[in-house]
Simulated scan of single mutants.
Amino acid sequence: MSDDSTLFQLSPDLDECRRQAQVAFEKWRRQHARALPAEALIEHVGATAVPGCETKGDLDVAVRVASADFPAALAYLDTSHQSNVRSARREGFAAFIAPGYALEVGVQLVVRGDKLDQFSAFRDALIADKVLVARYNALKRAYRGRSMAQYRDAKAEFIKTVLGA
């Protein structure tokens, strides 16, 4: 897991990252879907899910659940994953790191419709707009070699702009 003092870097091989991320996503889903609530939506989100988007080479998984299913999903992920200490846990949201994969795997558990339920919407906005992907890639290139904290702050502002949040 990269911490905020790590320097932000982009992968030199996007195609290989996307391939590894898809393999890891399918493996994660096979391993965990049956233990999650039946109505959970498990989605590959993040840069590796967007054609042409540059990436640092990780996988982001969103697990979107109904409010009533959140406690059960949280209990399962608490026992099967490491808590992501970079991300504040709050009612309706928790972030995890999935160990045992060839690349870093982050799992975001979120209540559908919550204000933090934006991972899929952001991914879909990027997929629908190549100009937006180009702007996002330019932001990423501008933060290459800077701290992860600086990159994450700029990324959060970009997402807010895109989603009108």
Score class of each variant (00 low, 15 high):
2 S>H: 12
3 D>I: 09
6 T>N: 13
7 L>D: 10
7 L>E: 12
7 L>F: 11
9 Q>E: 15
10 L>V: 05
10 L>R: 01
11 S>L: 06
12 P>M: 06
12 P>C: 11
13 D>G: 05
14 L>D: 13
16 E>W: 05
16 E>S: 07
16 E>Q: 10
17 C>G: 08
17 C>Q: 11
18 R>K: 14
19 R>L: 09
20 Q>I: 00
21 A>F: 05
21 A>N: 01
22 Q>I: 05
27 K>Y: 08
28 W>N: 01
28 W>T: 00
28 W>P: 00
29 R>C: 09
36 L>I: 02
37 P>R: 02
38 A>R: 12
39 E>P: 03
40 A>D: 01
40 A>Y: 01
41 L>H: 11
44 H>T: 02
45 V>A: 05
46 G>H: 01
46 G>T: 01
47 A>V: 05
48 T>R: 03
53 C>T: 04
54 E>W: 06
57 G>I: 02
60 D>M: 03
61 V>F: 00
63 V>L: 01
63 V>Y: 00
63 V>D: 04
63 V>E: 00
64 R>M: 15
66 A>E: 13
68 A>I: 07
69 D>V: 07
70 F>H: 04
72 A>N: 04
73 A>S: 03
78 D>R: 14
78 D>K: 14
78 D>F: 07
80 S>T: 15
82 Q>N: 10
84 N>W: 11
84 N>V: 09
85 V>Y: 12
87 S>C: 15
91 E>C: 12
93 F>Y: 15
94 A>L: 11
95 A>I: 03
95 A>H: 06
96 F>W: 12
96 F>D: 01
97 I>E: 11
97 I>D: 10
99 P>I: 05
99 P>M: 10
101 Y>F: 15
102 A>K: 10
103 L>Q: 03
104 E>D: 15
106 G>I: 07
107 V>S: 03
107 V>M: 06
108 Q>C: 06
108 Q>A: 13
109 L>E: 02
111 V>D: 08
111 V>W: 03
112 R>C: 05
112 R>F: 04
114 D>C: 07
114 D>H: 15
115 K>Y: 08
118 Q>V: 14
120 S>L: 15
125 A>P: 01
127 I>F: 00
129 D>L: 11
131 V>N: 12
131 V>L: 05
132 L>C: 12
135 R>W: 06
137 N>G: 06
138 A>F: 04
138 A>W: 07
142 A>E: 10
142 A>W: 03
143 Y>M: 13
144 R>Y: 05
146 R>I: 09
146 R>A: 12
149 A>D: 06
149 A>Y: 00
150 Q>R: 14
150 Q>P: 08
151 Y>T: 14
151 Y>W: 05
156 A>D: 10
157 E>T: 10
159 I>H: 04
163 L>F: 06
163 L>W: 00
